[in-house]
Design a protein around this nucleic acid. Structure first.
Lengths: 155, 155
DNA sequence: CCGGTTCAGTTGTATAGTACAACGGTTATG
DNA sequence: CATAACCGTTGTACTATACAACTGAACCGG
């Protein structure tokens, strides 16, 4: 499988396109099955908030290419669920610094555990080496400057 | 980067989980940017219909893990746009065999071209070998039996 | 051949996620 | 200070999706 560069670029690109799209299509459903209580996006945002140890809504929006209104509502939902709290920044009255509540941290940990378990199960047959390389490829793909896409067009 | 199996499985799984999720989050927006006229799911279904040279709605549903109602509406949309046509199967009056119209084939080809171009651009720096391997990993991931996930629960 | 079951697809209803546009406060800058 | 830039909310609309209830068609056992 690691053979010698015989596959034409275009064929690989086609597969990558199709498979990434296929993954995208299924991701939400899978996420919902794994942890119905915490919707995919909320989960992701909560994880980011937690990972950053406090961040602003705008940060989330730019990081995930989401509209501010989307983030605003997602955060509102998370707050309504008691998973995050907003602390007004003392220095800048416009911004709200988001932090996970204790409950939020717990829910997040639980969700992370079960999702990790699902991946663990799914990728059971993979060697550690393949896992590492697949992860590296994904990382490389995602961190590639999004300017590679015809991003532009602010509508 | 292809080094010797030093990365623990769990770390890789964590990255894979996060990066696949990140990708999923952005996929739709990216697709919309690349080809606003043909929504992501419609595009995918149209591509499948085209690739299969005629298929049933149920096939789409099972293949993509979608509810039949979802497929029904998507197909209805595609039909309304004049991109697919339904031909009642002569042998079984229940099924409708879906085929792309001429317009549908054209739109599909155009969308495929521009999406491929976007990927081409984005993955410009990748060697053919890396592309082939990334594609292989994705394929392997997606074709892994979904039974690995807590699929079950017919609700 | 009739009645129950299974299968294909549609429609009603509800929900998540998202965008865009318009707005209200807040801070920064000329 | 006035205007611009910025942060977040809210109104509105749309896509994608699921579940449930339903219609019609086909199959199956007696």
């Amino acid at each position: 499988m690691t053979g010698g560069a015989e596959v034409p670029r275009e064929a690989s690109l086609d597969v990558i396109q199709r498979e990434l799209t296929a993954f995208a299509r299924r991701a939400r459903a899978a996420a919902a099955r794994v942890h119905p209580e915490l919707p995919l996006v909320s989960y992701t945002l909560l994880a980011h908030i937690d990972g950053q140890r406090g961040c602003r809504a705008t940060d989330l929006a730019t990081h995930y290419l989401l509209d501010k209104s989307t983030v605003s509502r997602q955060v509102a939902t998370l707050e309504r669920l008691g998973l995050v709290e907003r602390r007004p920044a003392p220095d800048d009255h416009r911004v709200q610094v988001l932090h996970p509540t204790e409950a939020g941290a717990e829910v997040l940990a639980s969700a992370q555990t079960s999702r990790l378990a699902a991946y663990q199960e799914r990728l059971r047959d993979w060697s550690a080496d393949d896992l590492a390389q697949f992860a590296a490829y994904l990382l490389r793909y995602n961190t590639a400057s999004p300017s590679g896409l015809p991003d532009s067009s602010p509508h």
